[in-house]
Amino acid sequence: MGDVAVGARSDADGPERRAGDEPVERGEEPTAEPDGGEDTADVTDRKQQRSFLKELPLLIGIALILALLIKTFLMQAFSIPSDSMQNTLQRGDRVLVDKLTPWFGAEPERGEVVVFHDPGGWLDESTQSDPGGIAGAFQEFMSFIGLMPSAEEQDLIKRVIAVGGDTVACEKNGPVTVNGKALDEESYIYPGSTPCGSEGFGPVKVPEGRIWVMGDNRQNSLDSRFHQDLEGNGTVPVDDVVGRAVVKAWPIDRWGTLPVPDTFEEKGLAAAPAAMGLAGAIPLVLWRRRRRAAEAARAAAPRDGA
């Protein structure tokens, strides 16, 4: 007799509802605490933690794959190991290298700072560092995904001075010339450096598909000048170029871009190929003029004899 039916009721349906009784809405069940009196919020938090731990390996895997793809196709960080590019780059600087544009056929241009593999004989094997042990394995893994510079790959960083087809030279105590035009390098070479270093070089004709590179610290850079006894007369194959250094990313107070100096944008720097084209065009024009003159003479011959 004490049970109360669910739903509306009238006074005739039974005893009057006691004060404090509230009707239970249809379909709603009373909330009961889990066994042992455990709070529902604690159970939910534990479930979320277990779900996160299950997803964590997947998230790490995706992050590593993305890092590897970025390193392979887009950007890679490199550490500056020496003083050969002062003051543009200091020892310990981190630069970001654009690896995307070479995939679309872009080749290094004059004035760019590029990272390239040792073409052979430029670096002494004694310069290689192998930390070994756990530290070595960690660095190898981090360099594989592009988050640290490699301890095994021997890469160099220099500025492109001349490209395939150019003639580069420098007389002692004189400026560097490309295709006979002197470069104004005061804005980027190390203060106190002379453009050629202690001695001059060249002229050197840069083969197609190769580049001539020099460090900005001319008195402290073993660049193309010092490897002219090797294949290519000290030039570097374009295929060995990893990419162009575009940004100084670390330390923060040295952040900045690495633009091409104005001297490489001046007109006439690539005058040699244009002059060669003009020299080749002159004989062609003369030949065509002689041919037209001969044709005109043959066309006029019957009229003269008529």
Rank of each mutant, 00 (worst) to 15 (best):
G2V: 14
S10D: 13
A19S: 09
A19H: 13
A19E: 03
D21C: 09
G36T: 01
R46L: 12
Q49M: 11
L53D: 00
L53G: 06
A63P: 01
A63L: 05
L64D: 09
K71F: 06
M75G: 13
M75I: 14
I80Q: 00
N87W: 12
D93M: 01
V95C: 03
A106F: 10
A106G: 07
G111C: 03
V113D: 00
D118Q: 03
G121V: 07
W122F: 11
F138Y: 06
G146Y: 03
M148R: 07
M148D: 09
L156D: 02
R159P: 02
V160C: 04
V163D: 08
V163G: 03
G164F: 00
V168M: 06
K172I: 09
N173S: 08
V176Q: 01
G180A: 07
A182G: 07
L183V: 08
D184A: 09
E186M: 05
S193E: 06
T194A: 07
C196W: 01
G197E: 02
S198G: 07
F201P: 05
P203N: 04
V206H: 09
D216S: 09
R218C: 06
Q219R: 10
Q228L: 12
Q228Y: 08
L230C: 08
L230H: 10
P237Y: 05
D240Y: 11
A245P: 06
A245I: 09
A249L: 11
A249H: 01
A249T: 03
P251T: 08
W255Y: 11
W255G: 08
T257P: 08
T257A: 08
V260K: 13
A271G: 07
P273A: 00
A274I: 10
A275C: 12
W287V: 14
R288K: 10
R288P: 14
R290L: 13
A293H: 14
A294Y: 06
A296T: 15
A299F: 02
P302N: 00
